[in-house]
Structure formats: structure tokens, C-alpha cells
Amino acid sequence: MIRELEFKVLCQRHRDEIYRYARALLANQADAEDATQEVLLRLWNHLPRISPFNLRAWLLQTTRHFCLDQLRRRSNPAAPMLVDDEFLDDRPDELAVNPSLAADCTFRLEQARRALLRLPENLRSVFVLYEINGLRYREIAATLGIPINSVKVYLSRARERLSNLIAQEERCTKTCND
């Protein structure tokens, strides 16, 4: 009974950040939902053995391992793993430019999303965990198994590269329009 209650509380607290991280890695809503389900099931099975002080890192680490495993199995080019400057040819449908998205704001947001997906996995993970999920450097280091200094360097690189990629997308769009 206590286990169920604890599990429900933990699900309510962490499901969004698991989902966001999974979506950033898998670049697909349905896959992200599956990943979230799987991670929460693993949480249920391992709950008595997980230290409460390490729970958040454990959840995000499990999410990362599961997503990377899924990507490796599928060899899905939709989510670029370690491609650095290679442009994405095969994008997921939901992220492809939708002609119906007339609003400039939405269009630019989609551009930014695409740029995020073009980041290498380690930079993307650090960016998503810090900027979107709000983890601290120490927590990100524990989740990814890297030193704190590397987290800071990766975050700086991720921001810089994202800005460049967004600018590149904008240039590309302008060229296409012209």
C-alpha cells in the first residue's frame, strides 16, 4: 500500500521530465510515451532498492539508457545520435515543416526544435537536462556519468552550436523562399 502511494507520488513528480528528456532523445511523441512507460515500470520494479537521494538521477539515467538502446536497435536516422554537422534528411513527421503552420512564431519554434535534434546526443542531453528539466550541474554529472566541468563545457557548446544551427536554418529558409 505504501509502495503504491510512493510510486504514484513519484510518477506525478517525475513523469514530465522523463517524458521531455525521452522526447528530446527520440524525437517522437509516441516513442517518448513508450519510453516514459517503460521507465516508470522499471521504477516500480526497482523502487525498494533505489536510494531516494539518487532517484532523479536514476530515473533520467534509465531514460537515457532506454532511449539510446531503442535508437541503436532501430538504427533510426530520424534522431541523429552523434552526427555533428550532417543535415537531417529523414525527419520525423511531427517535426517536418508543416505548410499549415503559417504563423512565423510557430515556424521559428519548429526550426529551433529541428536544430536541437541535430545536436550530438551528449550536448543535447546536457542542454535538455539543464535548460528544460532544470537539473543542477551535479545532478547532470551523476546522470550522464561525466565530471561537472564537462557538463559546463558541454552546456556552453550546446548553446553556441544551437544558436549557429538556428541561424543556419533561418538562412536556409530565406534561400528557399527567395
Partner: peptide
């Protein structure tokens, strides 16, 4: 940070896990 990047960050923070997952 780039303006679009800030907007992306804000938008992604709003994303929530659907109830059907739970």
C-alpha cells in the same frame, strides 16, 4: 542566448506527459 532558443526552451518546459501514459 538566441531568442528562438529561449522560446524553444520555454515551449519545451511546458510539455507534459499525457495522462494515458500513467
Amino acid at each position: 542566448m538566441h531568442e528562438d532558443l529561449q522560446r524553444l526552451t520555454r515551449e519545451l518546459r511546458k510539455e507534459t506527459c499525457p495522462q494515458r501514459v500513467l
